[in-house]
Design a protein around this nucleic acid. Structure first.
Lengths: 184, 184
DNA sequence: GCGCACATGTAATTGGTTACATGATTGA
DNA sequence: TCAATCATGTAACCAATTACATGTGCGC
């Protein structure tokens, strides 16, 4: 009955946790990561990162460690933080994830390399299967309604189908690469 | 010097404006649109829609019109709202848009069917050209850095390239369909 | 000596989420 | 008559954006 403090890290929180699993980073280094690397969807402004780090410390998912002579400090992930990250990785993929949160799925995937091979393949397979169903639904709708839709609506809808098909193909590719690579 | 009230509609605001250009809709009908149609990325909860409508009324971009006998009311777009929408449609496409806001570009595209053909093609061409450059940059980075990247990083990066290529192809398709359709 | 990148924050505002609240209408 | 859907809102909370603020260290 103690502190069941419900922790709901944001996507940015997870991105930070993912970044510092492995090696501690300073707040500034984290900012630069978001600014310069392909992780660039997440905001790198100080007004975003520093409050997020404060939040993560409050949750005890990261801790500040004083570094070397200069007195500059870095943030490292805690045990609890690693657990939270693992739970995120292993959270079952839902319909709604493939339909609306592809970005989150990719973020998860990008950071989950430390998981066992089967788990990573299971993750990709889940996406694959769900997205296949989703595409079927989209296409069924399309073939039924396309004639009544305005040109731009039709094209925008097609974009959705195309994007999902791309993700599907990517899943297959990724599964095969992970399977071939790192053979047991 | 009077009220230069800076109006920065959110994406949701634009989505609502786009929906009610043409015919007025009730708040509930708007919610159902977001909930049931492919526009489903935008939240349909009452706590989102009704405040948004209030905001849009404050900005004078929409106005409430009393409807028929039952007393139920709808929202219709105002002159100012139409202008705001047009300006949004015609806003030049920027690098950052194709790199991070594809969703917004698609929303714009989906609603801009009333624009002149050349303007719509120009919109798509802008995206096409910018995304081509973007892909070049991503690939250059990839061929240089891939060997130093972890497997999952490489795959996630590949997903980014694949997605952008899909958008590029879609642009070409859309341009050709708009060109062929509605010949002058 | 000047400017730039390094480095870390705070404050105000605001939009979105979640949960709550209420009432009418309709069909089984 | 009971449940579901129609229909419209409010309130608390919170994360992100933007702008401001401050100071260090390095290279030219």
């Amino acid at each position: 009955m103690e502190n069941k403090e419900l922790i709901k890290p944001t996507l940015l929180d997870y991105a930070i946790l993912g970044l510092i699993q492995g090696q501690p980073l300073s707040g500034y280094a984290i900012r630069k990561m978001f600014e310069e690397t392909a992780l660039g969807n997440y905001s790198s402004s100080p007004g975003t990162i520093y409050p997020a780090l404060k939040r993560l410390q409050k949750y005890e998912l990261v801790q500040k460690v004083e570094r070397d002579k200069t007195g500059k400090s870095s943030f490292e992930i805690t045990k609890k933080g690693m657990l939270t990250l693992q739970n995120w990785f292993l959270k079952p993929v839902e319909k709604v994830d493939v339909e609306k949160n592809t970005g989150e799925l990719m973020l998860r995937f990008g950071f989950m390399e430390t998981l066992e091979k089967e788990q990573r393949i299971h993750f990709l397979s889940s996406i694959h299967d769900l997205i296949k169903i989703h595409i079927k639904g989209l296409e069924a709708f399309y073939y039924k309604e396309a004639k009544n839709m305005p040109l731009h609506g039709r094209l925008a809808f097609q974009f959705g189908i195309d994007s999902n098909k791309t993700t599907l193909k990517w899943c297959k590719k990724a599964i095969s690469q992970i399977s071939n690579n790192e053979p047991l």
